[in-house]
């Protein structure tokens, strides 16, 4: 297990390095000059040169990349001041330190993701299990068609709809906002309730379908029939034998979903104007804000890779045939 984690972590570093290089060099392939944007309308060549220097984009791109990477591990000095490791520099657009901005935005994303994930995992898997248990009956048909309809909904469609109804029409809740959990637990909960439920609807439907289909597949396995041939009850066979096997595709998808949600639920955050990593990512690309783009990209990629590793480790617990060595 330890060797597995070590090997995977090394692999992850390589992947992150590749991602950083690709992002960095692609950024310069775009014909937009961040210094020009920062300089504004009445820009003189001298002012532009100063800005370039301050931004650290006066040097050749590979040299810039080198400085950037060194900064992450060793820290770096900027015109704005010293930047301790991990240093992603200062935002071109707002002059804020990138790392601190990411740390400020992250709790919003985490709250949004975890709150939603708990609900959609529990409700989705539960509904899927009920549908699989009652497969072929009316209950199954209702669950299946409902989840098909709901999973083809879009957050940017359902979100405003729910907002219009709950916030503006019925006045049950305020506009969603993020309040730190440590400051005001009730405010945190109420502020995120609508986004949770909306994210929920779509993900729950997906997990219902996934869990149902993978359970039904498992129920047709030979070893499930063997268990019944031994005289084990239908319930025992369902929960002990079929359920165990059905977890593998679910864990896989859950890992992917969670990893990418931690990197920022762009559409959800944008729909509800929540200041998380997703909105930060969108803004930084719009602003041609290289340090911020790099920071958010690497941060998000780290989570995706991390959850990938966790998923693989989880396989080993679920399926003894998977050996981690």
């Amino acid at each position: 297990m330890l060797r597995f984690l070590l090997r995977r972590s090394l692999g992850a570093l390589v992947i992150l390095l590749v991602i950083s290089a690709v992002t960095f060099f692609l950024f310069y392939a775009v014909p937009r000059d961040p210094a020009m944007l920062a300089c504004g309308k009445n820009c003189t060549p001298d002012a532009l040169a100063v800005i370039r220097k301050n931004m650290g984009i006066d040097e050749p791109v590979p040299v810039q990349y080198w400085h950037f990477m060194v900064g992450i591990f060793a820290g770096r000095d900027f015109a704005q001041g010293a930047c301790p490791a991990p240093c992603f520099g200062y935002s071109f657009a707002t002059q804020d330190p990138v790392w601190q901005t990411i740390l400020d935005r992250f709790p919003t994303t985490v709250s949004l993701t975890l709150g939603g994930a708990v609900v959609f995992l529990v409700v989705g898997l539960g509904a899927g299990m009920i549908a699989a248990w009652k497969r072929g009956t009316v209950v199954d048909k209702v669950f299946s068609s409902a989840s098909l309809v709901l999973s083809s909904m879009q957050i940017y469609f359902v979100g405003p709809l729910v907002l219009a109804l709950v916030v503006y029409q019925l006045d049950l809740l305020d506009q969603p906002k993020y309040v730190p959990l440590t400051e005001d637990p009730a405010g945190w909960f109420l502020g995120l309730l609508i986004p949770w439920l909306v994210v929920q609807i779509i993900f729950t439907a997906n997990y219902t379908r996934l869990s149902r289909s993978s359970l039904i597949e498992q129920l047709q396995e030979d070893h499930v029939r063997t268990a019944r041939a031994k005289g084990m009850s239908g319930r025992f066979v369902f929960f002990r034998y079929a359920w165990r096997g059905s977890l593998i595709p679910i864990v896989t998808i859950f890992g992917v979903d969670l990893g990418s949600l931690f990197g920022g639920a762009m559409i959800t955050e944008w729909t509800f104007s929540l200041p998380g990593l997703g909105t930060l990512a969108v803004d930084s690309v719009r602003n041609t804000d290289l340090p911020m783009v790099m920071g958010v990209m690497l941060f998000a990629a780290t989570f995706i890779i991390l959850f990938n590793i966790l998923v693989d480790a989880a396989y080993a617990f679920i399926d003894p045939r998977v050996r981690l060595s």
Binding site: H223, R225, T226, R228, A229, K230, G245, I318, P320
Partner: peptide, 19 residues
């Protein structure tokens, strides 16, 4: 089942649970 009457299945690879 499994008590008074029992069955040995065709394919022992798939008929035993891997878990």
């Amino acid at each position: 089942r499994g008590n008074k009457m029992a069955m040995i299945f065709q394919d022992p690879l798939t008929a035993l649970s891997p878990y």
